[in-house]
Design a protein around this nucleic acid. Structure first.
Lengths: 156, 156
DNA sequence: CATAACCTTCACGTAAACGGTAAGGTCTGA
DNA sequence: TCAGACCTTACCGTTTACGTGAAGGTTATG
């Protein structure tokens, strides 16, 4: 398996829909580090970096979180990754259980956070949907009325 | 029916969880106008203003929209309100239908917009949920292992 | 009617999240 | 080997969404 091709920042920008400037900014804020640097210090990104950047973009655009908030989430992700690595090297069932519990608590935090946002957005959405349905009904009634006015006496 | 009590800006802030500054800022950006002004030019808000501000806050915090975007949505809301008033005064079925279709198209725009956001957020949420479930399963397996190590020979 | 607790309109300040540009180094294909 | 496209750091600029006074007017209460 030949090592995968690493991308330069502009290619990554194209792939993710971010700008090079944003990507550098996220690095500056500790949200990710490029997988490598070239001889001449060019940033080089691998597939997991792309995934990470898409995750960041999702939290930014879809969940509407601040870069600082995303930073915390990313830190949690990293600590879970470390915990996962720690799992690999221990056979002590009690220790494994402790690590798993910690990872679970951490991911449940993220889960609840997104859930709260989702619930509120869903409530707004439902609200709009109700109004949309009401309009639909009004329109249907209006159409009946219109039909009656065109074909008078044919109602029933 | 005695006219309802109007609130001053600080009371409104308390009710909505916004700051007076934000409320004035939203007014400056055309997102709402207070129902009235007192003799001495104090801003006075009624119940529908409160509702409006809560709607704005929802779009800001839950949907994560910019004030400019919210401004557009609010304009649409207002044009729908005008359309609704126009409905009241016409009996021409064709005209009623035209107005209703316009309102429907407008609200469908908002509906789809929120729907897109909701879908993407939902996708992120589902992703996290899957990871959470996997951890749960791992934990359950770990617990079995732990039980087996404490009570050896009692497995089955 | 005084006074504390509001409010008003400027107007300047600020944090976040980048945009843009300068000065210079790096890569790659002909 | 060299031109053009790309990259680096550094730094200043900008927009958004307010925060924070200042200077002065308004309202409710004793």
């Amino acid at each position: 398996m030949i090592s995968e091709r690493l991308l330069r920042i502009q290619e990554v920008a194209g792939e993710t829909g971010l700008t090079p400037r944003s990507i550098r900014y996220y690095e500056e804020r500790g949200l990710l580090r490029p997988a490598a640097r070239s001889e001449g210090a060019y940033r080089l990104y691998d597939a997991s970096d792309l995934e990470q950047l898409r995750f960041i973009k999702g939290l930014r655009d879809d969940a509407g979180l601040s870069i600082a908030d995303i930073g915390e989430i990313v830190e949690d992700e990293e600590s879970r990754r470390r915990a996962r690595a720690a799992l690999e090297v221990t056979d002590d069932p009690a220790e494994r259980r402790r690590i798993l519990l910690e990872r679970l608590a951490s991911i449940e935090g993220l889960h609840e956070r997104l859930n709260a946002k989702l619930a509120r957005l869903q409530a707004m959405f439902d609200d709009v949907e109700v109004r949309k349905r009401r309009l639909h009904d009004l329109l249907a009634a209006s159409d009946q009325e219109l039909a009656a006015s065109i074909e008078p006496g044919s109602d029933r």
